[in-house]
Design a protein around this nucleic acid. Structure first.
Lengths: 236, 236
DNA sequence: AGAGTTCTTACGGATTCAATACGCTTCCCC
DNA sequence: GGGGAAGCGTATTGAATCCGTAAGAACTCT
């Protein structure tokens, strides 16, 4: 995600910090609005409709937590909370309040910009349709959840599709069964043979000869890898 | 994050400190460039494109703050600032200046290495593939776990791959069997002949003539060393 | 020449993966 | 509801692979 035309509202009462951070955001290509207290923040947010809000927790007037709460009542903008407090409890509290990320002072403006980009990436992804992938004669379209092999459609199950999608998006990269079960299944633990079996079933459908796979290679002692040897960079 | 093939630029005018820190970074697997003053630092940074810069604040010529500012104008490399001053205000000032972390003298080189790793971890994307290494006709790609010798792929086992990766990332450095078994196997003790045998098996696959090895040299009474005699600095 | 170090080979055990089978749940259509 | 099919996760078996150790040969340095 590039900063492009994104608008960030920076709510911070300490002028020095505010200036430095604003410069960094501008340099990174964002448009920046500023507010020094809670009420102004809400007013500016309503009128400018920012794509993201950076919110100091200590503010004159309404404090950050309250501003966050009220923002959430009227709009669904992502919020990054900035605070001088750094305990674990505070962090959890901040996130529970509805902040999408949490930064403690003193912080590096560079890091803050990275987090802004990361949060925006996350929140943009949720709505943007994912592009389809193409590799090795296989075309996978997440929007319609269809896969074709040299033109003819394949009937994949949910798991099979998700697994293939994950691998095709990251061709030529090995993933352990643990990584796969975490990424595709969303589990933190579980029987890893689940992955083995699903790879097997997937191969049965996409490989010309499932016994000697050409697409999903097994890397002994490590995991699996989708091989995209050739030509076309897959992106529609 | 493991050091992979990351390149660090170390800017430090005190030779003793510089040497110690460089050794630690090398041991940790980083590639290290060095500069002793501000102007050299900028020049080296431009040509080598490091993944991170360690910057002493007190420097002859341009001081650290100024170097940091100028770096930031042209590239977006993370910076760790090293300084003799240690007050809280300085720390904040340093971070506000754009440093991503801040270390005060006297510092432990070990801690510095940890911070380097931490900063890199933050600035690197989650599934970003580690850069591959190339040396002496050999190309090793950690992401796909493949190795090619002048283009044709080699079939290495897990141990062989890990061993080769470790050595190739630290070319021209000798490692004892103890160090290798600790780093590659993760053991604190064990039969050292394990290393010997695996080096042998590895040579069988990568050396033109395994009996008179050109790549993995044995240093009698000490250990093994991967020789990168030639030209190209290994970076994909 | 001798002691210490490294090379080389061989082998049994352990790990890993493929392949199949089975029970459970879900969904659909009757 | 009820029968049946399909998908999923787990367990089991068997085979291929890899790994660590041992033990003797070859080598290096003094």
């Amino acid at each position: 995600m590039d900063p492009g035309n994104r608008r960030v509202l920076l709510v911070e009462d300490e002028q020095t910090i505010a200036d430095v951070v604003r410069d960094y955001l501008l340099k990174a290509g964002f448009q920046v609005d500023m507010a020094a207290d809670g009420f102004t923040a809400l007013k500016v947010a309503a009128s400018r409709q920012p794509d993201l809000v950076i919110l100091d927790r200590m503010l004159p007037g309404l404090d950050g937590v309250e501003v966050c709460r009220r923002l959430r009542q009227t709009m669904s903008v992502p919020v990054i909370m900035v605070t001088a407090l750094g305990t674990e409890d505070d962090r959890i509290l901040g996130l529970e309040m509805g902040a999408d990320d949490y930064v403690t002072k003193p912080f590096s403006p560079r890091e803050l910009v990275l987090r802004v980009k990361s949060v925006l990436r996350r929140s943009v992804k949720e709505f943007a349709p994912e592009p389809s992938v193409e590799a090795a004669g296989l075309e996978l379209d997440p929007a319609s959840r269809t896969v074709t092999h040299n033109g003819n459609p394949l009937a994949l199950t949910v798991r099979e599709f998700d697994l293939l999608a994950f691998l095709m998006r990251r061709p030529n990269q090995v993933f352990s069964r643990e990584e796969l079960i975490k990424a595709v299944w969303g589990w933190d633990f579980g029987d890893l043979s689940t992955v083995t079996v699903h790879v097997r079933r997937l191969r049965e459908k996409i490989e010309a000869n499932p016994t000697t796979p050409e697409l999903i290679k097994t890397v002994w002692g490590v995991g699996y890898r989708f091989d995209d040897t050739g030509g076309g960079h897959g992106r529609q």
